Computed example of a mutant assay.
Amino acid sequence: MNITLQTYRPALTRFQSLIALFVLCLALSILSDKFLTVANFWNVLRQISVNVCISTGMTLVVLTAGIDLSVGSVLALAGAITAGLLRNGIPLPSANLFIGFTLLGAIVVGILTGSVLGWFNGWAITRFNLPPFVATLAMLTIARGLTMLWTEGFPITGLGESFTYLGTGWLLGIPVPVWVSALIVALAVLLTNKTRIGRYIYAIGGSESAARLSGVNITRTKLMVYTLSGALAAVGGLLVTSRLDSAQPNAGISYELDSIAAVVIGGASLSGGRGSILGTVQGAIIIGVLNNGLVLLNVSPFWQQVVKGFVILLAVIIDKSNAKNEA
């Protein structure tokens, strides 16, 4: 029997994320006695919850052959606006009026902020036929500037126990952020696998011209996808802000890189049309475990950036190699 690497290539390609995660966990468990502990397990899950939220939205965008570089800045702005409204409300001295916000009201406004910015990304891309890279890069700068203007460069703190529960609380023995990210993943899996919109998303990524000829409303689908990406970035911003009990003006910097890395490592193609939400979750876990392991090993933060950069590069190389073999 002639057994070669080609025989196992389909299985290796399908399970490459799980294999990489197993090897990474095995190496870290050998190098650090603090890695395989219950406390560290929950710590990793809590940390990756933010990236899972952002990466779920990023996956929807990438499936349409797009990209969203603004998620980190949108995260920061949504968190800052939520914290500002919750802490200070909106004073209107000229009208002798003060508008206060409940916890739910501030959260809704924060998510709406992310949704509007995401919608604007989609509108700019579809209305002016801009490359997604350019449109979302511009939004990255715009949202970061708006965050600085809103916070005046200072953190907003003292947000109350009710709000911090969202990022630090436990429910049925599981951290609340894990519940939030799990719910988002479940809804996204349902959207992509069981709905017409999900089929449209894959069709656009596979061939936009063919999807248009098939009657798919390209503009409406892309607007929805980018709006969801912004909304989920805002949810990530709420989790970060509540966990720190502080809205930091520089929050979310480089989060877009972790998000793209999770999507690509999870098996999605940057050319669109191929990938899955569950694959992205695996990618987010790998990134989270890698970050956690580097911290436990006392690796310099500067070297951590270098390592993650090489991981992203390797993932893209593997993606291109798989695409060539499939062709």
Rank of each mutant, 00 (worst) to 15 (best):
M1W: 11
I3G: 09
I3L: 15
T4W: 01
T7D: 15
R9M: 13
P10T: 09
A11N: 15
L12E: 14
T13F: 08
T13E: 15
F22G: 12
V23G: 04
L24T: 14
L28T: 05
I30T: 09
D33K: 15
L36D: 12
W42K: 10
W42I: 07
V44A: 02
V44I: 15
R46D: 05
R46K: 14
R46E: 09
I48E: 02
V50E: 09
V52I: 15
S55E: 02
S55N: 09
V61I: 02
V62A: 07
L63W: 05
A65E: 11
G66S: 04
D68G: 06
A76Y: 03
A78P: 04
A78H: 00
A80Q: 00
I81L: 10
L85Y: 01
L85W: 02
N88M: 05
P91L: 01
P93S: 07
F98G: 07
F98H: 13
I99P: 05
G100Y: 00
G100A: 07
T102N: 12
G105V: 03
G105I: 02
A106T: 10
V108N: 09
V109H: 04
G110Y: 07
I111D: 03
L117N: 04
G122L: 09
W123Q: 06
A124I: 14
N129E: 14
P131F: 08
P132Y: 02
F133Y: 14
T136C: 05
L137Q: 07
L146K: 06
L146C: 03
T147F: 02
T147Y: 01
M148K: 15
G153Y: 00
F154A: 15
F154R: 14
P155M: 07
P155L: 06
P155A: 10
T157F: 14
G160E: 05
E161V: 10
S162V: 12
Y165A: 13
L172G: 10
V176E: 03
V176M: 01
V178E: 08
V180D: 00
A182C: 09
L183G: 14
L183K: 12
A186W: 08
A186Q: 11
V189W: 12
V189F: 02
L190T: 02
T192L: 15
K194L: 13
R196D: 05
I197P: 09
R199I: 03
R199V: 02
A203G: 11
S207F: 11
S209N: 14
S209H: 14
A211T: 12
L213F: 13
V216G: 00
N217E: 13
L223T: 05
V225E: 01
S229W: 02
G230A: 04
G230P: 08
V235A: 03
G237Q: 10
L239N: 08
T241A: 06
L244R: 00
A247P: 00
Q248K: 07
P249Q: 12
E256N: 06
L257I: 10
D258C: 03
S259Y: 06
A261N: 01
A262G: 05
A262V: 01
I265D: 03
A268N: 06
A268V: 05
G275F: 06
S276Q: 05
S276V: 04
L278W: 06
L278S: 06
A284P: 05
I285T: 12
I286F: 15
V295T: 13
V295D: 14
N298Y: 09
S300H: 01
P301N: 12
P301H: 11
V307Q: 10
K308S: 01
G309A: 01
V311N: 07
V311G: 11
L313I: 11
L313D: 07
I317P: 01
E326Q: 13
